[in-house]
Computed example of a mutant assay.
Amino acid sequence: MAATTSKIRRALITGAGAADGIGFAIARHLGKAGHAVFLTGASARVMDRAAELRGEGIDATATVADLTMAADVARLRVAAGAVDILVNNAGMGSLASPSSDKAFVSMTEADWDQGIDVSLKTAFLVTRAFLPAMVEAGYGRVVNVASVTGPIVSFEGTSAYSAAKAGMVGLTRALALEMAKDGITVNAVAPGWIETGASSAMELTAALHTPPARAGLPHEVAAAVVFLASEGASYVNGAVLVVDGGNSLQERKG
Rank of each mutant, 00 (worst) to 15 (best):
M134A: 07
R75T: 10
K121P: 06
A180E: 05
A190K: 02
A222H: 08
L95D: 15
G138V: 12
F227L: 15
R9E: 11
A90T: 05
G93W: 05
T63F: 00
A201M: 05
I85V: 14
G192E: 06
R141D: 10
Y161L: 12
G91D: 09
S100R: 15
S199I: 01
A11N: 11
F155V: 00
F227N: 03
N187G: 09
V236G: 01
Q114M: 11
L241M: 13
T61V: 01
A11Y: 07
D244R: 01
A44W: 00
K7W: 04
K181R: 15
V242T: 15
R173S: 05
G254T: 05
S100Y: 15
S234F: 09
A133C: 05
S94D: 14
A215P: 11
W193S: 03
S162K: 01
V242L: 06
D113C: 03
S100H: 13
A166Y: 09
A129E: 09
A201C: 00
T68C: 13
I58L: 12
V242I: 14
I116C: 03
Q114T: 12
V240I: 12
D59W: 08
R214Y: 00
S200A: 02
E109L: 08
S147D: 12
G41D: 02
S100F: 14
A206Y: 01
G183M: 10
L249R: 10
M47G: 11
E251K: 09
I22K: 03
N237K: 05
R9Y: 06
G254S: 10
I58A: 13
E220H: 02
A103P: 11
V87W: 08
L241E: 07
V142S: 04
M179V: 14
I26Y: 05
T14K: 06
A166R: 09
M47V: 13
D113P: 00
A198M: 12
V236N: 00
L241I: 09
G138K: 01
T185L: 04
A96L: 14
I85A: 00
L67K: 05
T122A: 06
T172A: 11
T185H: 03
G23W: 06
I184T: 04
A96V: 10
